[in-house]
Amino acid sequence: MKPTTALPLGLLAAGVATAGYAFAETRWFALRHASVPVLAAGSRPLKVLHLSDAHMRPAQQRKQGWLRSLAELEPDLVVNTGDNLAHMDAGDAVLRAYGDLLDLPGVFVFGSNDYFAPVAKNPLKYLTGGTGISAGGAWERSADLPFEELRASFTARGWLDLNNRHDELTVDGRRLAFAGVDDPHLGYDQLDDVPADSSADLSIGVAHAPYLRVLDRWNASGHPLILAGHTHGGQLRVPFHGAVVTNCDLDRSRARGLHTHQVPGHEPSWLHVSAGLGTSPFAPVRFACRPEATLLTLTGIDSPGLSA
């Protein structure tokens, strides 16, 4: 009987070890760096800190402390692409975590987990391609997270609300124009045909979920840079294969990091998708996909684009 039971016991031990590692990886935060050549040739660099998918709970002290430390990077601009909350009482924890970053120029959009508390779901449905509400759909639940309080706190500190809005900021002497949408995963996005502001030093599109309808519209409208989150980088990545799913209609090869997006007849836009900082409390695991924030260095178009 011993040879018969050895293999199942070995598989069980391997499974337990893998699950333990995947749980531990959720606390192994990484700062990524990428260089994006989107400014006029010869421009001095502009540092942009891209934050996404914190999915904060009040007790997550390690995550909050790590986020606070990012102020030491002294970014010129903070871009927050949503899903800040994972608990009714997490609003104050989010504000403590962002800390001095809230005193810097910043912009934000919301994701579904700014509106709705996470619920237990069948993970097989996620893995087989459930991709949220289509454009123009209606979400069935009533919003139950304190998103209006969070919005008021962000705007009171000077961050721009870009949920279905255009706005602009002057950052380090450069005028930046923004187009933003509310969460496409919920079908809350209201896209328009307003072209990118060609008089600005840079036009940036900001969304939570990188659905192709949004990326296509902003590329066609002439936005050189688009920032999004939502995918968690796949959250569970297979070595030498990458993300299993993206939880939207973006291809798996662009589930995280710096890429380009282009529709026929238009110049390519740079697309940065953050793998995010957190997880749902009902799926507290990551594998080969550390939680992250990214410091984007925007450079002149005569410089190469590099990511790590």
Rank of each mutant, 00 (worst) to 15 (best):
N164C: 00
F154L: 15
L46M: 07
L102I: 02
G65V: 03
L9N: 05
V263A: 10
A40C: 09
L258P: 00
V214N: 01
A54K: 01
G137H: 11
T299R: 13
E149C: 03
V171P: 00
K47R: 14
L162I: 01
R57K: 11
Q60R: 12
Q235Y: 06
A24F: 05
G257N: 05
A288N: 15
A200K: 07
D83W: 05
V79T: 00
F110L: 08
S69G: 13
G10E: 06
R175F: 03
H55S: 08
E168I: 00
Q64G: 15
L277F: 04
R237D: 06
N84H: 08
M1R: 07
G137R: 06
T231M: 10
G222C: 08
G300L: 09
H272Y: 15
A220C: 08
Q262D: 01
F287L: 15
Y21M: 06
I133Y: 13
P284N: 08
R175M: 04
R254M: 11
G180C: 03
V214P: 01
E72W: 06
D192E: 04
G99I: 04
A41S: 14
Q64T: 15
R165M: 02
T260I: 06
T260E: 07
H166P: 03
D182G: 01
T4R: 07
R27I: 07
H33G: 05
S203N: 12
G158Q: 01
R68P: 07
G136D: 11
P304C: 05
L49T: 07
H230K: 10
L51I: 15
R174F: 06
S303L: 06
G129E: 05
I204M: 06
I301A: 15
R151Q: 07
L227C: 04
K47L: 14
F178Q: 01
H33W: 13
H185E: 11
G222S: 11
V107I: 03
S43N: 11
F29D: 02
D201N: 11
E148M: 05
G300Q: 05
F29N: 01
P291E: 03
A228M: 07
D100V: 11
L298R: 02
L277P: 05
L124H: 09
P45A: 06
L202T: 13
S35F: 06
A308R: 09
R213S: 08
G10V: 05
H208A: 09
G222N: 09
L176F: 00
F23C: 14
E72C: 07
